[in-house]
Every structure is written in C-alpha cells, then in structure tokens.
C-alpha cells in the first residue's frame, strides 16, 4: 500500500464562466448502507468539514435524527447545521470517520476542514506543480 495518495489539481469553471484549478480530493463516503463517490475541496481555512444538504440526503441521513446542532460562520451562518458522522475512504487508505457539519445549504461544495479531515490526514500542496499529496497521519 502506498503511503502517499497524489492528486492532480482539477480544472474548474466558476459561476462567472472563469476557469481555474483547485485541490479537489476524490473520496468515497459511506453512511450505513449507502455509498457515494464525491469530490471534496481541501479548505485549510474551514474550521470544520461541511456537507451540503443534498449529499446528506443522498447518503440516507435523516435530519430529524441528528441530535447535535451546530453554529457555522460566514455565508453558512444563517442556515441550520447538524453534526453527522460519515466513514470516508481515500485512495487505498483504511477508512476513517469524518465528522461533518451537515448544512441546509445546497450551493456549497463539500469542504474538508481542520476538524477533522486535517487531523486525520497530512497534506502537502504543490500548487506550482498542480498537485497535492495526502497521507494518513503518522505515516512517513
């Protein structure tokens, strides 16, 4: 098993039709019986992982069942969010449990933030070479 999962930056087009490249990480989310292949944005500025409304629903999560309400900041501050634990598989690494702030917003990307993606994985970004490396914590 490789210790490093190397991912090229992805070409993206924003809402103004402008193009750019972003560090998007492909991963598989598993929640109970459901599984979903997604692409999530690495966001070192985000205190928490963020899961958009529709992705939570696709995973089969039930809003009313989630007991912990969260207060987010920025553009998400006016919308409700609740805590959701989801298993995530990245590359060939063993699955880890990610804690998401599941927001009622749908026009937000999946964000991987400090709690707890960056606590589980060490990431090195090589923007000048348009790729980034991901490795589970504690691996050299």
């Amino acid at each position: 098993m490789d210790n490093v999962f190397r991912v090229p930056f992805s070409n993206v087009v924003n809402h103004l039709g402008e193009t750019g490249i972003l560090p998007l990480l492909p991963l598989q989310l598993n929640y109970r019986e459901k599984s979903l292949e997604v692409s999530a944005r690495l966001d070192t500025g985000a205190m928490v992982n963020v899961l958009p409304w529709s992705v939570g629903l696709e995973l089969g999560a039930v809003w009313e069942n989630q007991a912990i309400s969260l207060k987010l900041s920025g553009n998400l501050s006016n919308l409700e969010a609740r805590a959701l634990l989801v298993a995530a598989s990245i590359g060939d690494f063993p699955p880890v449990q990610l804690a998401f702030a599941w927001t009622k917003a749908d026009n937000v990307p999946i964000l991987l933030g400090m709690t707890n993606f960056f606590m589980e994985f060490d990431v090195c970004v090589f923007r000048s070479q348009s790729f980034f490396d991901v490795r589970p914590k504690g691996r050299q």
């Binding site: 966001d43 969260l70 207060k71 900041s73 026009n107």
Partner: peptide
C-alpha cells in the same frame, strides 16, 4: 464571490470533536 469556509466556527469544531 461567495466565501463558504466556516472560518471561525470554533464552537462547531468543539462540538464535532466531542461527538468523535
């Protein structure tokens, strides 16, 4: 440009850590 990052959501971070 929308800024979605919850930059200073320290309470939410604590709540998720407690949940984990």
């Amino acid at each position: 440009y929308p800024v979605w990052s919850p930059l200073e959501a320290y309470g939410a971070s604590d709540a998720l850590l407690n949940l984990l």
